[in-house]
Amino acid sequence: MIRLHRCTAIDLPTLTKISRETFVTAFEKDNNPDDFAVYVAKAFSSKTLKEQLEDPDTLFYFVYDEHDVLVGYVKINQNNAQTELKEPTSVELERIYVLQQYQGKNIGSELLRKVIELASALKKKTLWLGVWEHNPRAIRFYERHGFVKFGEHPYFIGNDEQTDWLMGLQLN
């Protein structure tokens, strides 16, 4: 059983650390080192994350396991904080990461169910996300949970233009 903790400014150092660690572990090997370094330095800087934490439409949550160990985090965007749709009836799951040593323990599925509950509690009709087209494991994960592709958008890692699939889930 996992537990979510809504992040605040006090959590900034830990949020910065886990954000960098999970992203680097997941994607460093698949990207140009120079472009990747530029992206990580900006996207996961304390300054950038602090600004996002201060935005009432951006919600970060730490994920703790049954032993109260930090195992991951999520980032959810509403309203104008969304990177694409920006519809009041939708919510974006921008980041969902589980630390590598805790993967394969069904935490991701449990976490996604919690995110769906959060989105429903926010009275949203659609939960959507962007997933890299070259990440078949993640695509299959979202498809297993009912997400369907509805579009694409460009995503830049430094100067490297990549393509994310936009996938959505209709909520009750």
Rank of each mutant, 00 (worst) to 15 (best):
P33T: 03
T126D: 10
S45F: 00
K75E: 03
D57I: 02
I139M: 12
G108C: 06
Y155V: 06
D11N: 04
F147V: 01
L49G: 03
Q170K: 15
V40R: 03
T126L: 08
M1Q: 14
S90V: 04
E110T: 14
A41I: 10
W132G: 08
P88R: 14
T22S: 15
V131F: 00
L15Q: 02
R140K: 14
L169M: 14
R113P: 03
K75P: 02
A43N: 01
H153Q: 05
C7L: 15
I107L: 10
T126P: 09
L112A: 06
Q101I: 07
R20M: 06
Q103H: 09
L122N: 07
H153R: 10
H153G: 05
D57R: 05
F60C: 12
A9M: 11
D68P: 09
A81H: 13
E54Q: 15
K75T: 01
W165V: 05
F60Q: 09
V91Q: 04
L12W: 02
K123D: 15
N77W: 00
A81T: 09
P13C: 11
E28W: 07
D65W: 08
D11S: 12
F27K: 07
V38L: 13
V74F: 07
E66D: 15
F141S: 13
D164Q: 03
Q101H: 08
L111W: 03
L85S: 10
K105S: 09
I157Q: 06
P13T: 08
L15S: 12
E152W: 14
I2K: 01
G151K: 01
A81Y: 08
T48S: 07
V63T: 06
M1R: 06
F62T: 10
L169Q: 08
V148L: 13
E21N: 10
I96W: 00
K17N: 14
F36S: 05
E28S: 04
A41Q: 15
K47A: 14
S46F: 01
F27Q: 05
H145V: 06
L15D: 00
M167W: 02
A37M: 09
L118K: 01
D164R: 07
I10L: 11
E143T: 07
F27I: 15
K50S: 05
V71G: 09
F23P: 02
T58I: 03
I2W: 05
H134G: 04
Y64G: 00
Q101D: 10
I116F: 05
L12V: 02
P88D: 15
Y155D: 03
Q78G: 08
G104L: 09
Q82Y: 01
Q103F: 02
D34C: 14
K123F: 12
V38M: 13
P136R: 13
F147S: 07
K75L: 03
K75W: 02
E117R: 14
P154N: 08
P13Q: 12
P33F: 02
L169H: 13
F147K: 02
V74D: 05
P13F: 11
V115S: 00
A9S: 15
V38T: 08
E51I: 06
G168M: 04
Q82F: 01
T48R: 00
Q162F: 01
L118E: 13
I139D: 14
